[in-house]
Design a protein around this nucleic acid. Structure first.
Lengths: 204, 204
DNA sequence: GTCTATAACGTGATAGAC
DNA sequence: GTCTATCACGTTATAGAC
């Protein structure tokens, strides 16, 4: 094992991330990962027991990193509900612009792997015990928010934020929208979505 | 070839739809399809040249059926913009409740198959020449709608409608939400989304 | 048209030299 | 730790009998 520099183990993991994100588990060949990492196929099985094991590591880390953002913001005592929306929308749009394949990767792989590691991310508890939940209830009581179910709030916020990235191939492919225009559209939404959320959730 | 009854060709296609929707192209084995269809594996290659060819047929039909709804409604001269939103939201929620795997299937497979058949569904032209587009522009001119870009309108409408179904595994897996509760939540949204859209798009 | 048997190939994983 | 060579297996697709 090398002392410093980019470990081969890390090189393999980075390569695995790239290929798994792009092709998904089933369509990925371990040879692709090895080539991407610039190492031999046998090394992959030396460091990680199998393709499945390597995948599970990537998947776990990806899910954790992706939802961590959400959890932290939802549980902040220092920010208002409006500010939480702003932060989440901004964080996720920036994150997904950097790593555009993550949402579709998560969605696609959760389809096959049923309950792979959902238990490890207890969204349920976070929702019902979070500061966000308390603030939402308070806003409902005050009449600032009409819809009493916080799930609608979360779904709307994440849907408006994440959906366009998932649907990107359709937008790009069918419209004469190019990558640059698409990104600009998404940056526009960083400012628009919080405004939209505020007005839509006070109606109904 | 049989005269009437369910043709074996149809039986294979129906089986292929089920398995492809569930597992995706890469993870699907032709044996699974044959078994699901109750026929022999060789017959699959007799009717359709290959796994890829069979998949392409299913994919094409699925995409066409899925987007046809959208196109028809967007081009109706008889309905107002508000009514178009109501119709699209209702149609898609009903459709996806019946066939829940379709959105994730389309998203997942478009990732690998780059521009498989996007050219065949010219969303671009439909947007720019549709009645919807004219009505949207008119509403912007009158100040009823603030955001001038119709893409935001479409993205928001489809995002609020389709996204929760795509994110269902996360909602079900992490929350103590069961299938029945989830479906009820979606049915609620049939009424809520048009109201939300109306109020959010008049702001910003 | 439908089946059984099998060919042809790709892929995950390991053995063993260095 | 890292490589080459190879095994073992699953899967697509076809040949050929019925």
């Amino acid at each position: 094992m090398k002392i410093k520099d980019a470990t081969t183990e890390e090189k393999i993991k980075n390569a695995a991330r790239i290929v798994f994100y792009k092709k998904g588990f089933a369509a990925t060949r371990t040879r692709d990962i090895a080539e991407e990492a610039g190492i031999n196929l046998a090394l992959l099985n030396y460091y990680f027991r199998s393709k499945a094991k390597l995948f599970e590591i990537i998947m776990t880390e990806t899910m954790a990193a992706f939802f961590q953002n959400l959890m932290i913001v939802l549980n902040s005592k220092k920010t208002t509900l409006d500010k939480k929306v702003e932060e989440i929308v901004e964080r996720y749009i920036d994150l997904i612009i950097k790593e555009p394949e993550i949402p579709t990767f998560i969605i696609s792989e959760l389809r096959t792997n049923p309950g792979l590691l959902l238990q490890k991310i207890p969204l349920s508890e976070v929702i019902k015990t979070s500061i966000f939940f308390q603030q939402h209830q308070e806003a409902v009581k005050k009449g600032i928010i009409r819809e009493p179910n916080p799930l609608h709030f979360l779904i709307n916020m994440l849907g408006l934020t994440v959906f366009p990235f998932i649907a990107k191939p359709i937008l790009i492919g069918s419209n004469e929208l190019n990558d640059w225009e698409f990104e600009n559209l998404m940056l526009e939404r960083k400012k628009l979505i919080p405004i939209w959320i505020k007005s839509m959730m006070s109606t109904g």
